[in-house]
């Protein structure tokens, strides 16, 4: 946009050019656009992008990685405490969103978004919600955190698999907000 030029009224365009414009953008720009407003998010969803999504848990951060073909294309990195602290105000949940190819990044919060909202956003925009079911039940052998073996299962959440095969599940609820359980 030139100095003094008025904004380009993108959302006033008919559907056909509007969707083509978004389709011709890069993944990083498509994702950034999805974060501008609910309307822009619906626009990006409407072009049916599909990208596999992984969650990575390191010692100091949790990352949501969005892939393009075989490679990580975008990474949303959250400091450990932004994921783990109960009821952290959403303005304090500020992931750094990085384009791993172009090395561009921005750090921002989104009103009302905590980690699970960011994850849901990514899953929705890249049409992976159904591939990551949040309702399936997994049984845990000899759970260290439960006294009653009858309750030795986990419902919902998302599975995380490390390269050596160790599997864990991240679950969110209204009481403890965030629970990370290593299954095996």
């Amino acid at each position: 946009m030139e100095d003094g030029d008025r904004p380009f009224p993108l959302l006033r365009l008919p559907d056909n050019p509007l969707q083509r414009i978004v389709l011709l953008m890069g993944r990083f720009e498509q994702f950034a656009l999805s974060l501008v407003s609910n309307r822009s998010k619906e626009l990006v969803k409407s072009i049916d992008l599909s990208s596999p999504i992984n969650i990575t848990v390191d010692e100091e951060e949790v990352s949501i990685s969005i892939h393009k073909r075989m490679y990580v294309n975008i990474r949303c990195s959250f400091a450990d405490d932004q994921v783990a602290i109960d009821n952290l105000p959403s303005e304090m949940v500020k992931p750094t969103v990085t384009s791993t190819r172009g090395r561009h990044s921005f750090t921002r919060s989104r009103k009302g978004y905590r980690f699970d909202d960011w994850l849901s956003h990514c899953l929705e925009v890249f049409h992976q919600s159904e591939k990551m079911p949040s309702t399936h039940r997994r049984y845990v052998e000899n759970p260290p955190f439960l006294h009653n073996p009858d309750y030795a299962y986990i419902d919902g959440g998302y599975d995380v698999r490390r390269a050596d095969g160790a599997t864990a599940s991240i679950r969110f609820d209204n009481f403890v907000y965030f629970m990370f359980i290593v299954l095996n």
Partner: peptide, 13 residues
């Protein structure tokens, strides 16, 4: 290479 805030201005969203 624009951020969401920049996109809001560029496209008047």
């Amino acid at each position: 290479d624009k951020t969401p805030e920049e996109l809001r201005i560029i496209y008047g969203i």
